[in-house]
Simulated scan of single mutants.
Amino acid sequence: MDRAQDESPSPRLYRKVAARLIDEIRAGRHPVGARMPAERDLSLTMGVSRPVVREALLALEVMGVVEVRIGSGAYVLRLPEDEPRSPTEVTPMELVQARLIFEGEAASLAAANITDEELARLDSAVAAMRREDGSFEDWQAGLTDFHMTMAHATRNLAVERSVRDLWDMRSRSTECRRMLEEARSRNYRYSLQQHVEILAALKARDPVRARAAVRMHLEGSIEHVLMAIEERAVADARARVAEMRSRYFSR
């Protein structure tokens, strides 16, 4: 892997590093119980920045392949399975694009079939999301309940299961969680207002308005993901320059 690849803002770069580390563990270069090389050494060996290496080690830790010990480093816990499945398989961009396809139409279908009881539940979910003093988990629970209730209101089991599968992937992804936490801290009121608008469209039982409201919400999410990718690329570039500066002046 060369330095040119490291210039890419793609969030998939750390996965390439993780895949290479998995190959090395399988080949016996890093035996079970052994300490992995330091982040700095891996960064130099693989031609990527230390933040990219850190993301790769985090992915391996989530898979249960390594254990990262504060102040000590990463240690190999077990050999990777032949076909490892990582909770971070789906990127935030892939996920929000899929949600845009499914949930916009799900909202349209729900608007035509939703019951008063389900509308009351959506009201409760919005009230939970409205609590500024609530934890991220409280907000996440309200958000999940809102979208799962809307999916159930479609009266279409295939649609409901598809939406639920997307949300399961979302909840398992550490990358998605990190971006969601950032989104809540930056765009709390905007996100809340979007869900208020979705609820108003469902209360009006207006399929066109409901579809448009959900699409606007998810298109805003796509913009946030793009901004996060851009910020990460800038941060990685700054880290690389800082390392180069440190190596140069240390001479």
Rank of each mutant, 00 (worst) to 15 (best):
R69Y: 11
V225K: 02
I70R: 15
Q5D: 01
A74E: 07
S124Q: 12
L180F: 13
S49E: 15
L226D: 04
Y248Q: 09
H152K: 14
N156P: 02
A239G: 11
G220I: 02
P80F: 11
R121C: 13
R26V: 09
R85T: 06
V196E: 15
V241H: 13
V196Y: 02
W167K: 07
P51F: 04
T88N: 06
R15E: 00
E89F: 13
V90T: 14
A18D: 04
R215T: 03
H152L: 15
A34G: 12
R131K: 14
I101P: 03
E7T: 15
D6S: 15
E103N: 11
Q193Y: 01
V234K: 14
E89L: 13
A19N: 09
R251V: 03
A141Y: 11
A128F: 05
R50Y: 05
R247I: 00
A158C: 08
L157M: 06
G134F: 02
S43N: 11
E105D: 10
E94R: 08
V62H: 09
N187D: 01
V65M: 05
E105K: 08
E105H: 08
Q5F: 03
D2L: 05
A120T: 07
R40P: 00
A125F: 05
R15L: 05
L57D: 09
A127L: 10
R186I: 00
R40K: 12
V225D: 02
E197L: 04
H147A: 10
H147R: 11
L109H: 04
N187A: 00
A98L: 10
R240H: 09
T88Y: 05
V17Y: 01
L192V: 04
L58P: 02
N187T: 01
E117V: 09
E81R: 13
D138A: 09
E137P: 14
S171F: 09
E181N: 06
M179A: 02
I25A: 10
N156Y: 11
A98H: 07
A111F: 11
M179H: 05
D236E: 15
A107N: 03
P84V: 03
G142N: 14
A34Q: 12
R161M: 10
R121D: 14
P9W: 06
Y14S: 12
Y188T: 00
M227Y: 06
G33Y: 08
E61P: 10
R177K: 13
G142V: 04
T45R: 15
R238N: 09
R35V: 06
E117L: 09
A27D: 13
E81C: 06
D168V: 12
I114G: 08
V52W: 04
Q193L: 01
L21K: 02
L218Y: 12
D123W: 00
T144Y: 14
N113E: 15
F146M: 08
R78I: 12
V68W: 07
V96M: 02
E230M: 11
I22D: 04
T144M: 14
L122I: 01
R238I: 01
I101D: 04
E7H: 13
E117I: 04
E39H: 12
R251T: 03
A200M: 02
E230N: 03
E81N: 10
P9A: 05
L13N: 01
